[in-house]
């Protein structure tokens, strides 16, 4: 067991994937708690599709993928948040609209330039080989920023997640914090999607929060548990992916599903226990 782990981490690409993945898993879990509770889960999914379109365009233009994708996805994040706050267009429909449009645009760009090939497959479902040294540096910086901001603004994030109207009434600039969360989510998604895949990256945002909500009864508990669950599931998933030569993204999602089921069972048993008392 330990030998396999040592062997696994003797490959530089595995070490890079491990670091980037763990950092992305941590950030997306923290941001995910607020997004899921505020009913913004679909924003993560929408952003990953926009990211796919942006990466495809970058590849066609021979531009650096992150330099194109990060600004585009940040823009989309701010836009999606505005739309969700606007009663004229229903938020979920608008997100579906934007995400399928970007997916279609990305596929068009790829098929007209390089043709449908393994790159497309990798964008969709992720590749463990995709992480460069640059990604490692970026992901460490990003997670440091997310952690510091999250801890510093924790009380305000709680307030706007629980009751945005009250928070605004007491002078919290809710719009600013919503935008901050959206921007950080955008960067997290772009960093993680080439490894996890555009179709699977939003699972990192949604699963840890939902899993922790089965068992934890305080906001702080959910946040801490989500962060731990997310990192553990990522580590388990990537190990399985290495051992079975399975795609990393899918393996991580499978690990998350397993933990969700376990937590749901524990939560249900505990509810039964309290009711029978």
């Amino acid at each position: 067991m330990i030998e396999t782990l040592i062997e696994m981490l003797s490959y530089p690409f595995m070490v890079r994937a491990f670091i980037v993945g763990a950092m992305v898993a941590l950030c997306s879990a923290l941001l995910g708690v607020s997004l899921v509770l505020k009913r913004y889960s679909m924003i993560g999914d929408g952003l990953s599709h926009v990211g796919f379109g942006a990466l495809a365009a970058a590849a066609a233009l021979n531009a650096a993928p992150l330099a194109v994708a990060i600004p585009v996805v940040i823009l989309a994040a701010v836009l999606l948040l505005r739309i969700s706050g606007n009663s004229q267009i229903k938020g979920d429909a608008a997100i579906a609209l934007i995400s399928t449009s970007s997916l279609a645009a990305g596929v068009m760009v790829i098929s007209l330039s390089t043709g449908m090939n393994t790159d497309v497959y990798n964008y969709m479902f992720g590749s463990i080989l995709a992480m460069s040294g640059e990604d490692v540096v970026l992901s460490v910086i990003l997670s440091a920023v997310v952690l510091v901001l999250f801890i510093f603004f924790y009380q305000k994030i709680f307030a706007i997640t629980f009751d945005e109207t009250f928070a605004r009434a007491t002078g919290v600039k809710a719009g600013l914090y919503n935008t901050l969360i959206a921007v950080l989510t955008a960067v997290t998604i772009v960093l993680g999607m080439r490894m996890m895949g555009a179709l699977l990256i939003s699972s990192l945002i949604i699963f840890p929060a939902l899993t922790s909500m089965r068992v934890c009864r305080t906001f702080r508990g959910v946040v801490i548990s989500a962060a731990a669950v997310s990192v553990v599931c990522f580590a388990a998933g990537i190990t399985v992916s290495y051992l079975c030569a399975a795609p990393a993204g899918a393996s991580v999602v499978m690990a998350n599903i397993a933990v969700l089921v376990i937590f749901a069972v524990i939560g249900a048993l505990r509810n039964l226990g309290t009711r029978s008392r």
């Binding site: 997640t161 629980f162 109207t165 009250f166 928070a167 002078g171 922790s212 934890c216 959910v222």
Partner: peptide
């Protein structure tokens, strides 16, 4: 102003302790 808003859907399944909710009133 100590504001008591109408309850929202979000709060129906929100994992937060009573203490956490009450304490958030001190934010201003």
């Amino acid at each position: 102003i100590g504001y008591l808003p109408q309850q929202t859907d979000v709060q129906k399944d929100f994992p937060a302790s009573v203490y956490e909710v009450v304490l958030s009133g001190r934010l201003n």
